[in-house]
Design a protein around this nucleic acid. Structure first.
Length: 379
DNA sequence: ACCTCCCGCCATCGC
DNA sequence: GCGATGGCGGGAGGT
């Protein structure tokens, strides 16, 4: 792989238990520091900048201090929404957030074509959602097995043979796309976890299958929420976990970071083993209040952005402040059609770049401090 | 006790 | 045969 930057005592991919140096401190280990969402935020912070066109998985893994397996996870969902495109083995090309609108548009069209949509939040979704969500096991009857295959340019994973199609069918990427279609193709703004699970799996006749899929949904949701495409919440009534679509608009309300898990508010996934904390790195991070690199930069930029009197709309990273636009209580924010056409153009504006450069600057600063004085090098 | 979801084993794929 | 991918679910942290 590339010259491994000295920083993170490289958590061995999956080798020996890497005896965490001097007895791990007290700032005990916390899963939050290793969430997929956080990892994704860091990943984006690392690569979302000018000049980055190609991303090497090994490079990403070592920079982020995680094993490849985790990189595959985020890369798969990022690819599903167009941010990345597989180029070759170990190589992905960075498309950036500006590619999201198109990707979503395509997913939408695809979904409409497949007749996935139009279910109303309240009704029994399964009925209307014609998702090609065959449940495994007896799924052999994959519908069309290719629907996803022939459209989206970068949403796709190569054309596979019918056999591997089976695998593809259960892939995180497909699940992600279908999950997104749920929102993009309908007018619902919020979908509860189990609703989503059912929609994406058909009625889980099998509890274990369901549990597994739910795990996947959590995975997906974590990265999507780190991009602010969705927000984790819970149904007002039942309090059941749910996901709110933020899509290309902003949020209208600050997602209280105080919530259980505030993705993108902490930095790094440095240590590796569960139950361990890299004393050196972890400690420093701790001390430096690695907080908010992403989340905050994000938010603060919102400020900067408002200055950006330039009429530009924020995308996934929409500043909370700005997003307040339609404070209407009952906004069924889903004029997708309008949104896409409206946002697409603006997406490629300078302001967005500024926002991210600021954002990455913060990361860089932290990185060089914590990780050792070495500047970041993008492959 | 239930919810979340990290972790890494191991089946597959592609060469 | 081998490295790259990534499905999958055990089980531990979080609430």
């Amino acid at each position: 792989m590339a010259a491994p930057p000295p920083p993170p005592p490289a958590p061995a991919q999956s080798s020996a238990p890497a005896p965490t140096g001097p007895s791990a401190r007290n700032h005990g280990y916390s899963r939050k520091q290793k969430s997929l969402g956080l990892l994704c935020s860091n990943f984006l912070g690392l690569y979302n900048r000018d000049g980055v066109t190609s991303i090497g998985l090994d490079d990403a893994a070592s920079r982020l201090g995680v094993e490849r397996r985790r990189i595959y996870d985020i890369v798969n969902v990022l690819e599903s929404v167009g941010v990345l495109a597989r180029k070759a083995k170990n190589q992905y090309s960075w498309k950036g957030f500006k590619a999201i609108p198109n990707a979503l548009q395509e997913l939408r069209e695809e979904g409409l074509r497949e007749n996935i949509c139009n279910f109303d939040g309240n009704e029994d979704p399964k009925a209307s959602l014609g998702l090609q969500i065959s449940d495994d096991e007896d799924d052999v009857e994959r519908c069309g097995s290719q629907q996803t295959e022939n459209s989206s340019p970068n949403l796709n994973i190569k054309p596979m043979n019918p056999k591997s199609d089976n695998r593809r069918e259960k892939s995180l990427a497909l699940l992600t796309q279908n999950f997104v279609k749920l929102f993009v193709c309908s007018t619902v703004e919020m979908i509860s976890l189990d609703e989503a699970a059912k929609l994406l799996l058909g009625d889980a006749h099998n509890a274990s299958v369901m549990r597994t899929k739910v795990r996947r949904i959590y995975d997906i949701a974590n990265v999507l929420s780190s991009m602010n495409l969705i927000e984790k919440t819970h149904t007002s009534d039942t309090r059941k976990p749910a996901f709110k679509w933020l899509g290309l608009r902003g949020k209208e309300e600050v997602p209280q970071e105080t919530k259980k898990r505030a993705f993108g508010t902490d930095i790094t996934n440095v240590s590796s083993k569960r139950g361990k904390v890299d004393s050196s790195i972890g400690g420093k991070l701790d001390g430096q209040k690695q907080k908010g690199l992403v989340g905050e930069a994000d938010r603060s930029n919102l400020e900067d952005s408002k200055d950006g009197s330039k009429s530009y709309q924020f995308g996934p990273f929409a500043p909370v402040t700005i997003a307040r636009a339609g404070t209407g209580s009952t906004r069924k924010v889903h004029d997708w059609e309008k949104l896409t056409s409206t946002y697409r153009p603006q997406y490629q504006n300078q302001a967005l770049k500024d926002l991210f450069s600021h954002y990455t600057e913060a990361w860089k600063t932290w990185y060089s401090e914590v990780a050792g004085k070495n500047p970041i090098r993008i492959s």
